[in-house]
Design a protein around this nucleic acid. Structure first.
Lengths: 332, 332
DNA sequence: CTGAAAGCGCTTACAG
DNA sequence: CTGAAAGCGCTTACAG
């Protein structure tokens, strides 16, 4: 079956295609009578305007793209879900394209595939950021702040929250605290670690590089690396481990338990993110709540305002909250 | 900055736009010399063809849409991730739109938003399925089989696998087995339950409706409902619980442990899906491995073959495998 | 108020 | 081999 076009509707209603277009787009000039005739014809023919043609005329795609390395990990999945819902509600399409090669991204930007981009500064080099500015591609970053006329950010202050977490541990009597980080250069990890180290320094605790574990923010790797760490440091264990995200905290806890030790009896473990699906994980994780739902909504809202020219790029900071559960304890 | 169009390239290369188009699309008619001139001009101007215009001419959108109720739950997130990766690799765009109202879906189908659709039969009514057939919208379903010239399916035989799981439990000496289902009408849940019940019947075990728990395939709800179930049946507990998916198995295990009982000491618990991020969940879950990666790849491959007219719709069945871990035990 | 015409940026059959 | 022209399905400034 051929899809109905504006010509079919025009013919059926006995008017020109221009009139059909106006009637269907609520132009005030068309007579109620004509309008009704057009709408009836359109309905009886199951007419839906061709999206592509509208786009070509308007130059708009009504599409928002999310450029990310993955949507499988819980944080990304949650965020993508919230954004997809919000974007759909606002009448836009939601496109996901995963990090691969540079040219792919450039083609998407220059090829007019989207009205707005949601991305991570970490995945985009300077030259492309300049390109986004030059071509005024509306963009919202979600890992760290970039601000320009057409670029905004909705971010979480990982440094400050990382610092608060370590301050909390110190206040609970811990002085030997390990930290599980991701790769160097991963902004959230770097920032949380920086906050952690600053908190230690401010409390007069000397920094010990051997207490930094690289778990890549992945459960599996954190598990393995913590297992090695526990063997290596068996006579000199920390009393607490600050895992840079919840996923690694799980790996850390598994490794500690498997070594015959208890959490928090022998070692306190804290995470970061408060992932919803860990709700019933035992022991309940002391962590920092990162409001993913709020983030998703703010990102979409800010981006659509940029697209519609209602605002300039801004930097929006998300609140975060320390949540104390059973995986950590005071040793004072 | 204005984006470069084919006219800019034509001017710079000193040829017509027709020639530019041909040169850039590797038409064999154009002279190597002309071709080089065009390509150089295009490169120096950072030219990327406007996607929308190409689409309007070709009638193709090079876009594949995934229509689902959510991408937050791990299974969906994994599947979406694999599909996004595969779709990107094959040169298509990946669009996600979440289930909302009926008209939204219709607009997407008739409005020419996509070349192919990936969806769930459960989310689409008969009338719309007929519409997909009429307009020859290439579609691949992933929950249950529909086969037509332009419609295929890549499915998991939940009935058979559900049956096998219960047969395994019976072979381990269990005769009183509870089942945690989702809503009636959710195909996977219905099928797994049907397999479970058939296995019981074939083994000569009478069916006891009070052993069916509705956990909605959600961890939280399964936890609460199992808690209630354990209270209600405290003097008449089953020796095993078959949770229709891994997520509910987690909830079930939490509830059992919280009641002071052990898994599998007091009650064996088995799940379904073998979700990757439960890798280190304790006790390791006996479950059925549902090859999500394979499914994602097969779905995309079949859909693109349909789009490119290389095949008719087919029904592809995914293999599944029973994986025995610590959450279940033999009581013989 | 309605309609003919131009144009969005491409591709392609056709003429030269 | 190259280019002028038509056309994909819409919207909109303009004329009537």
């Amino acid at each position: 079956m051929r899809k109905t076009t504006i010509h079919d509707v025009a013919e059926k209603a006995g008017v020109s295609i221009a009139t059909v277009s106006k009637a269907l787009n609520n132009s005030p000039v068309v007579t109620p009578k004509t309008k009704k005739r057009v709408i009836d014809a359109a309905q009886s023919l199951n007419y839906v305007p061709n999206r592509i043609s509208k786009q070509l005329k308007s130059g708009q795609t009504d599409t928002i793209s999310f450029y990310t390395i993955s949507i499988a990990a819980p944080y990304f999945a949650n965020l993508a879900d919230v954004m997809a819902r919000e974007i759909g509600k606002r009448g836009y399409s939601f496109n996901i394209f995963l990090f691969s090669d540079r040219q792919h991204l450039i083609n998407n930007i220059l090829g007019n595939s989207m009205d707005g981009l949601i991305g991570f500064v970490d995945l985009i080099d300077q030259e492309i950021i300049q390109m986004l500015k030059d071509y005024r591609v509306k963009t919202v970053f979600i890992d760290r702040a970039i601000e320009a006329e057409t670029i905004g950010s909705v971010i979480f202050d990982s440094y400050q929250k990382g610092k608060e977490m370590t301050q909390f541990l110190i206040a609970s009597g811990h002085r030997k605290i390990a930290f599980v980080k991701s790769f160097d250069g991963v902004y959230d990890s770097d920032e949380r670690l920086r906050g952690h180290l600053d908190a230690l320094t401010e409390a007069g605790i000397e920094i010990d590089q051997s207490l930094i574990i690289q778990g890549n923010f992945i459960q599996n790797i954190s598990y393995i690396e913590t297992r090695n760490f526990l063997k290596r440091k068996q006579n000199d264990l920390p009393t607490a481990i600050f895992a840079g995200n919840d996923l690694s905290a799980i790996g850390v806890i598994q490794a500690i338990q498997e070594s015959g030790r208890s959490v928090p009896g022998d070692i306190s473990v804290v995470g970061f993110d408060d992932m919803e699906h860990l709700q019933y994980f035992k022991p309940g994780l002391t962590t920092i709540y990162n409001p993913v739902n709020l983030q998703g909504e703010l990102v979409v809202d800010h981006l659509i305002k940029l697209i519609e020219g209602k605002t300039q790029g801004q930097t929006i900071e998300l609140p975060g909250k320390l949540i104390v559960r059973e995986s950590s304890r005071s040793i004072i």
